[in-house]
Design a protein around this nucleic acid. Structure first.
Length: 429
RNA sequence: UGGGAUAUAGCUCAGUUGGCAGAGCAGGUGGCUGUUAACCACCGUGUCGCAGGUUCGAACCCUGCUAUCCCAGCCA
């Protein structure tokens, strides 16, 4: 019976079939140990001379790393085996003998590994990161779905910029130009007014000349948007969702965190309530360590790290000056210079994980903002309509998936948190 | 787009004052009946990033170029 290695514990004493690839092998006299991986785990198999056909024994000596194999044998509990179980081999069928696998069992540099990303994904740590990525996605979706959110995805091909055109990828769209979406937010506002509570989740594209450990040109963003919500409610949502997926990872993916040598105690400290501080208070905290920063400046990466080092939890920074936020942010009725915006700065220097806020919901004010930003009114006609036909206070946020995974996994650079990273100088493989 | 660094064996790196091109790992062969990144012995491997220059002599010094990595702005 074909089984997966992650389920091996259920088959003690039984004969099973494992379909996978050779991870590594060792030998000692008349006994051979092979490690087979199948994507769900790694299992050791023992091949002893005299207990199997001589022919099989010879094949084992020849199998190369990453050759595809089908292993048949009996499951046995044994403390000497990594993982606690091993398979006493009865038969091994080589589906294809791999030649000179480039990623040998030793340390490699990132320069070497990146062009082999298609193979690098087979390694233990990358496997663990991808499993955590999957779990975070699933947890966020479950969290939103349980609260009655509707997944209403927004287009990737869009007619115009959301916030300026310099950072957009342009594509030919029959006889006109289109752009790859850099946010689903504006469309989210339309679906929120149609469905109440919505989210979109998909790839977003930024043609920024960014070459930092927190940037990809193609990344995934989860964007919830809610009708009849105000800034405090948006912060509650961001906080609750974060606590939810952190708990889920600690519950279901401890094994993967261990493979990644992640300090779990840091994640166990994530508890409600998160500190909520105004932009002004944040500036004061940062200025204790960096006098260069002035009120009105946006935070750079080192500033975010100073902030995150001051707390165990993620920090919700709200009421940024309107000048450093997008045109659609609603202004604070008590102070027109401030926006009803919020960013969530992740712990341990993981950076801005969430950006969002309450949207401008007044037709005349929004029109004025468009003009101030020299945005083409015609392209935004449909967006303005949302303020003409039953406007209401509403808002939401965007969560950067790769940065979130980087934080949870304790991986510094976001390129390892997506199967195939797209960066300024890299679109292969 | 700036600032910093690197480029030597398949990989990770060392290479002293300018004087024969090195090690570990991976690979190959042999040995070992419970190995855990197994171990032991033996074996092979080079456009020293590219193009010039200085020098009796350059991996090393000088000039230019190319590529890559790190950090940052913009942002999620």
């Amino acid at each position: 019976m074909h089984i997966y290695i992650e389920d091996i514990g259920k088959y003690q004493g039984k004969d099973v079939i494992i379909k996978g690839w050779l991870f590594n092998k060792r030998s000692s006299g008349k006994i051979r140990f092979i490690l087979v991986r199948d994507g769900t785990g790694i299992i050791q198999s023992v091949i002893a001379k005299g207990e199997v056909k001589d022919e099989l024994f010879k094949i084992v000596d020849k199998i190369t790393q990453e050759s595809s194999v089908i292993l048949t044998g009996t499951v046995r509990k044994d403390d000497r085996a990594p993982g606690g179980y091993e398979i006493i081999a009865k038969d091994i069928k080589v589906i294809q003998m791999a030649e000179d696998y480039p990623i040998t069992p030793k340390e490699h540099s990132i320069e070497f590994l990146l062009p082999f990303r298609h193979l690098w994904l087979r390694s233990k740590k990358q496997n663990a990161i991808m499993r955590i990525r999957h779990e975070i996605i699933k947890a966020c979706r479950d969290f939103l779905d349980n609260q009655g959110f509707i997944n209403a995805d927004t287009p990737i091909l869009t007619p115009a910029a959301v916030e300026g055109t310099t950072t957009l990828f342009q594509v030919d769209y029959y006889d006109q130009n289109a752009y790859l979406s850099q946010s689903g937010q504006l469309y989210n506002e339309a679906t929120a007014a149609a469905l109440g509570k919505v989210y979109c989740f998909g790839p977003t594209f930024r043609a920024e000349k960014s070459k930092t450990r927190r940037h990809l040109t193609e990344f995934w963003m989860l964007e919830p948007e809610v009708a009849y919500i105000e800034l405090d409610g948006i912060m509650d949502l961001a906080e609750d969702m974060t606590v939810y997926f952190v708990e889920r990872i600690l519950e279901k993916r401890k094994k993967e965190l261990k493979i990644l040598e992640r300090d779990i105690s840091k994640l166990e400290k994530i508890k409600k309530p998160f500190p909520r501080i105004t932009y002004k208070q944040a500036v004061e905290i940062i200025r204790k360590k960096d006098k260069q920063l002035k009120y009105g400046d946006d935070f750079g990466a080192p500033h975010e790290t100073i902030l995150s080092d001051s707390f165990d939890n993620p920090i919700l920074v709200h009421h940024y000056p309107a000048g450093i936020k997008a045109f659609y942010m609603k202004r604070d009725p008590n102070d027109e210079s401030l926006s009803l915006s919020v960013d969530m700065i992740g712990p341990e220097g993981s950076g801005e994980l969430i950006g969002g806020g309450q949207r401008e919901d007044d037709y005349k004010t929004l029109l004025k903002r468009l003009k101030e930003n020299n945005l083409p009114e015609k392209s935004y006609e449909w967006y303005l309509d949302l303020r003409k036909f039953g406007t209401c206070p509403h808002g939401g946020f965007g969560l950067g998936l790769e940065r979130t995974i980087g934080w949870i996994c304790g991986v510094k650079h976001v390129r390892e948190t997506i199967p195939f990273p797209r960066m300024l100088d890299r679109v292969y493989p």
